[in-house]
């Protein structure tokens, strides 16, 4: 109750209506400057794909949004609420931001169903029966309802990643962050995960995806962000981005991966 009031007051000074608004973000790892004056605005319902060479800061950028990484300068707003290393009720803000990791990070000691209900029950305080109904709904959406009683290690990589997506969706997040969701998968499993993500995008979920799947980017992205050396070098809608990249480094990058 008190915490709600706290968040309410902090968000009262709403800076913008954007789902995610990143303003001149800077981050250092020791002396290494990973993010340099990054500005990025994501409207509700938009899908943004972030790409770039490894070490360009793209994972760090989306990990700053839910503060798995702390930034040193600049601001991040999620639906008008500022998230910063000083944010008190960080765990409450994170409930509205789903995240899917490269290595799935499912809980190996829990079944697929328990993986999905854990946070619903413990963070949202929802009763078991109701939580299981929600979990079943999302497991059906990612097309693995029949695996509910299994443990993560009994599933294939693609299945595990779809469970991880369902687990995040169960919290009914306002924004979904994907950190290279298909990079750890065998090639034949990539599409089953991408199909789920495409459906999610079509349903209007606000998404930020770090990925090198340019086919996916072409299909769903409202905007593609290219990062290099900790900066956003170029940002454009897919058609423009692929047909007419403005920056030399973007051209080199596209030349290498397409």
């Amino acid at each position: 109750m008190q915490v709600d009031a706290l968040i309410g007051s902090r968000c009262a000074s709403q800076r913008s209506e954007a789902a995610v608004d990143i303003v001149s973000l800077n981050k250092w790892y020791g002396t290494f400057h990973v993010l340099r004056d990054v500005d990025l605005r994501v409207e509700p319902g938009q899908q943004i794909v972030i790409c770039g060479p490894s070490g360009s800061g793209k994972s760090t950028l989306i990990r700053c949004i839910n503060q798995l990484e702390r930034h040193q300068r600049g601001q991040i707003f999620i639906h008008g609420c500022e998230v910063s290393p000083k944010t008190r009720a960080l765990h409450e803000l994170r409930r509205d931001v789903g995240m899917v990791f490269q290595h799935f990070n499912l809980f190996p000691h829990l079944t697929v169903l328990q993986n999905c209900t854990l946070a619903l029950r413990r963070a949202r305080g929802i009763a078991r029966q109701e939580a299981e109904d929600v979990a079943r709904h999302y497991l059906e959406r990612v097309r693995i309802p029949e695996q509910m009683g299994k443990y993560p290690s009994q599933l294939s990589g693609g299945q595990q990643q779809r469970v991880a997506i369902a687990r995040a969706l169960c919290m009914r997040p306002k924004v979904m962050l994907f950190d290279e969701p298909t990079s750890a998968l065998d090639p034949e499993m990539i599409n089953e995960v991408l199909d789920v993500m495409i459906e999610l995008a079509r349903d209007g979920m606000t998404m930020l995806c770090v990925t090198h799947e340019m086919g996916f980017a072409r299909k769903v992205a409202d905007s593609i962000v290219f990062m290099d050396g900790g900066r956003i070098v170029e940002q454009a809608p897919p058609l423009e981005f692929f047909a007419n990249p403005q920056n030399e480094r973007t051209r080199t990058f596209l030349g290498q991966i397409l």
């Binding site: 803000l93 994170r94 409930r95 931001v97 995240m99 963070a123």
Partner: peptide, 22 residues
């Protein structure tokens, strides 16, 4: 794996809950 704690954080669990449940 540190990813376990990160997954717990990303789901909005408190640190103590992550310790006890994960």
């Amino acid at each position: 794996d540190p990813g376990q704690v990160e997954a717990g954080k990303a789901l909005g669990l408190r640190r103590i809950q992550i310790l006890m449940l994960i």
